[in-house]
Amino acid sequence: SGELCCSLPNPKNVHFESINMKNVLHWSAPEGTGDGVLYKVKYLVYGAGKWIRKPECRNISRTWCDLSSETSDYEEQYYASVKAFLNGMCSDWMETTRFNPLTDTKIDPPTVSVSSTEKSISIILTAPEKWKRSPEGESVSLLQVYPGLQYNVSVLNKKTKKRWFFSISNNTLVVPWLEPGTAYCVSAQIHITTPLLHSGFSKEYCIATLNDKTA
């Protein structure tokens, strides 16, 4: 269709929000336009020949567009762009900065499962999975994407209020020689050295060691 006159203010703050490589384009509505603004989106693989329109994000009124599928190859880098329309007017195309899924994604904390015996707790950590197209799709752990992935584990003794830190490369940790009948709270964080990335700490998972049967 022929281009309309582009005197509409531009969409603002066009950027990717990425968590575990689920890459969603976000933007803010143009200033002073109120309701009724529609948008269309295009994206480009950096260095590849052309911009590609995203049909599912054509004439949309929301201010986000999921481009995870189009940007799933994390060996590539990408740009995306948004244009606004209202009452026969339109804005300029507004672009993101260059998006590198490998370094620009945020990492969720690992999931933590804890079990206990009388004098020990066992911790199993699971790194989050990379975004996938469908639940049936092949699961790829972020461990495969970032081979140098490690875990920082915090163990809090609820009685003494003392907190210990462990740094482990594999995903299991057994803390022996604990006090029976005592509550311990565990949280964990993912730490990647190349590129330098880390998740926040997970919420705390608390468990009590069993009571001492001989006592």
Binding site: L44, Y46, G47, A48, G49, K50, E75, T97
Partner: peptide, 19 residues
């Protein structure tokens, strides 16, 4: 990267990625 206006050309990745 903001000083590089050419989106459709890459020095290192064209035509094939280093990978």
């Amino acid at each position: 990267q903001a000083r590089d206006p050419i989106r459709t050309l890459s020095i290192l990745s064209y035509p094939h990625s280093l990978h």
